[in-house]
Design a protein around this nucleic acid. Structure first.
Length: 571
RNA sequence: GCGGCUGUAGCUCAGCGGAUUAGAGCAUCGGUCUACGGAACCGAGGGUCGGGGGUUCGAAUCCCUCCAGCCGCACCA
């Protein structure tokens, strides 16, 4: 089916085209009418006309017969009011459309880089954002029809591995594995670091071990692999607990790019981009300066001949463009990395590795702040483990469920609490502009009132409850929509707007556009639900309202699933 | 110093491809209460959209400038 927005847009575009080829109608929903086209204003300006005259010109060529009433409002806006017949047609089409009006586009390849925890280090709240936002984007892309290649750019390389491996040896393999497998990564890491800082002999061993690791020493690599395997297994557990689609197969860590790094240096050199500065091999992309106003380097190879993360990221760009054949690349990484990625992308373009046809974006997100609005610090010891956070949220949800004294079994209740907790935590992250700093407040997240995940789940559960109570059958195929009650019409307009909400979220890479839509839809539904009895209504109103309920239920469930949130049918 | 992000009701946030009375949620106050699940609904109060200029018929939205906060700015990723 063609979505309501697209029907209107194509009619408007035709009319605008007759006045000026390619003019944008600037169609959007409005509180003044169902939809509003503001494009006349820009068009009139470019033609030096009175906007109202231009509006009349467009109007004369606009064919919306049977679809919408149009009127020119204010200085020259086109206000569209959909006809009941058209809404009826659209709703009936939605009932038969599993995709709820969303067009499927054919297979672009999108590489989405997200989560990226570090081996032998705990996942904390900072990883939550990348993981949750990245996973939501991956789900939305897949639904649109793209091929998503998830890349979990795990930190599995670098100097810390010397001390980590030595610490592993000190503990003994079995004990080390035991310690890591119970998810006690932080204390493992901390113990290693503490020895590294206080014990010179250990420090020396660690340095020597790094050299062995980089030299490809077989035994050292085996020990390293233990650390990686145990950590990846632990991450997989966290992803399962979070209901995130990442799997161990998506883990392509920094070490994967090792063999490509020399090629990066060689080819940059061949391209004449490489400059030696202070002993390091650098590229100075245009437009970047340091605090003294001097050109800012991207350090590709350090003065000790080691490679930094710039080299790895450049190698990853090449790999993703030429081997994975990415049409789009998204990096869901914190905002502080903004300049780094700008420089990496600039260098990759200069080197000819990143064609303009490939969309490449740093999907930045704000810092995670504590209740005091200060940065959460990675090594302060005050960071919250992701899993313990989830556990606490689950416990609170479980306690709240228990209070409602349902006759659920303990197992069912706990499972439900898990779903609610995940919804609370994820929705809190996905319902605000990702660029902003994020105040981490567990109390607000798991509050069941207002603009929260559980509220949306609850709305969905109430809808399913209606269908459980259905005594006589309902036939969607014979259902039609008269929309006599204003609450019905408001709900219908909400239902019909799902495709453009998803499109907006995708275009801006901002999941909160979708969550905002879903919250609005849920509110429309609950208002409708209060005002319009469903099961008690006489036919054909009963069928019509069941139709609205069915569509609302499906829209909420689908929308939530695209955010990575489950929609249980009972709560 | 340069660059980036942020500054909207008491609190947390939408809105920022320019309209007309700036929207939610929480909190507060007042209603709905034999309900198809009250984790709900209806209503009220509450904002000089950080300050100041400019463009415009019209600016929270665009431009300039100032202020405040956070982040980044050469070998840790």
């Amino acid at each position: 089916m063609t979505s309501t927005y697209d029907v209107l847009l194509s009619r408007l575009t035709s009319a605008f085209d007759t006045v000026s080829e390619g003019a944008d109608p600037a169609l959007r929903t409005s509180d003044r009418s169902d939809y509003q086209a503001n494009g006349v204003m820009a068009l009139a300006k470019s033609r030096g006309e009175n906007p109202r005259d231009t509006a009349r010109l467009v109007l004369a060529r606009l064919d919306l017969a049977g679809i919408a009433e149009v009127e020119v409002a204010g200085p020259g806006f086109l206000n569209l009011t959909l006809t009941t017949d058209f809404l009826n047609d659209q709703l009936r089409a939605l009932l038969g459309d599993e995709r709820l009006g969303v067009a499927r586009r054919s297979g672009r390849v999108a590489v989405i880089d997200y989560s990226a925890p570090n081996v032998a280090k705990e996942m904390h709240v900072g990883h939550l954002r990348s993981t949750v936002i990245g996973d939501a984007l991956a789900r939305m892309y897949r639904f649109r029809g793209d091929t998503v290649i998830a890349r979990n750019h795990v930190g599995d390389w670098g100097t810390p591995f010397g001390m980590l491996i030595e610490h592993l040896l000190d503990l003994g393999e079995d004990e080390a594995i035991a310690s890591l497998s119970i998810g006690d990564l932080d204390s493992f890491y901390r113990a290693a670091r503490q020895k590294f800082e206080s014990d010179d002999a250990f420090k020396e061993r660690s340095r020597a071990r790094v050299v062995l690791l980089q030299g490809g020493d077989r035994e050292t690599r085996r020990l390293w692999q233990i650390l990686v395997d145990e950590s990846v297994a632990y991450f997989a557990e966290v992803y399962r607990a979070l209901d995130v689609t990442l799997t161990p197969a998506d883990v392509v860590g920094e070490s994967y790019y090792n063999d490509m790094l020399e090629g990066v240096v060689r080819d940059l050199d061949a391209a004449g981009l490489l400059v030696e500065s202070g002993g390091a091999l650098c590229v100075f992309p245009e437009g970047f300066t340091n605090r003294d106003g001097e050109p800012l380097p991207l350090i590709v190879q350090k003065s000790d001949e080691g490679f930094g993360y710039a080299a790895t990221d450049l190698a990853a760009v090449r790999d993703r463009v030429s081997n994975l054949r990415a049409d789009e690349m998204l990096y869901v990484v914190g905002a502080p990395q903004g300049q780094h990625f700008e420089m990496v992308f600039a260098v990759a373009r200069a080197a000819g590795w990143l064609p303009d046809s490939v969309r490449c974006e740093h999907v930045a997100f704000g810092n995670v702040l504590g209740p005091d609005r200060k940065m959460f610090k990675t090594r302060s010891g005050e960071t919250i483990k992701l899993v313990s956070l989830l556990e606490e949220a689950t416990q609170r949800a479980d306690a709240a469920l228990a209070l409602r004294s349902s006759n659920m079994s303990e197992d069912d209740r706990h499972h439900l609490a898990t779903q609610i907790a995940r919804a609370a935590v994820k929705y809190a992250d996905l319902s605000t502009d990702r660029q902003r700093d994020y105040v981490f407040d567990l109390d607000r997240m798991i509050a069941f009132e207002g603009d929260t995940g559980p509220y949306l789940q609850y709305a969905h559960a109430r809808l399913r409850s209606i269908f459980r109570r259905l005594e006589s059958p309902w036939d969607p195929s014979t259902t039609s929509f008269a929309l006599a009650d204003p609450a019905e019409r408001e709900l219908a307009l909400g239902l019909v707007a799902f495709p453009e909400a998803l499109a907006a979220a995708l275009a801006s890479l901002q999941p909160h556009r979708l969550s905002g839509y879903l919250f609005d839809l849920a509110q429309r539904f609950t208002s409708f639900y209060e005002a319009c009895p469903v099961l008690a209504a006489a036919e054909p109103t009963r069928s019509e309202r069941l139709g609205l309920c069915e569509l609302t239920s499906r829209t909420l469930a689908l929308g939530l699933s695209l955010l990575g949130i489950e929609a249980p049918s009972q709560m």
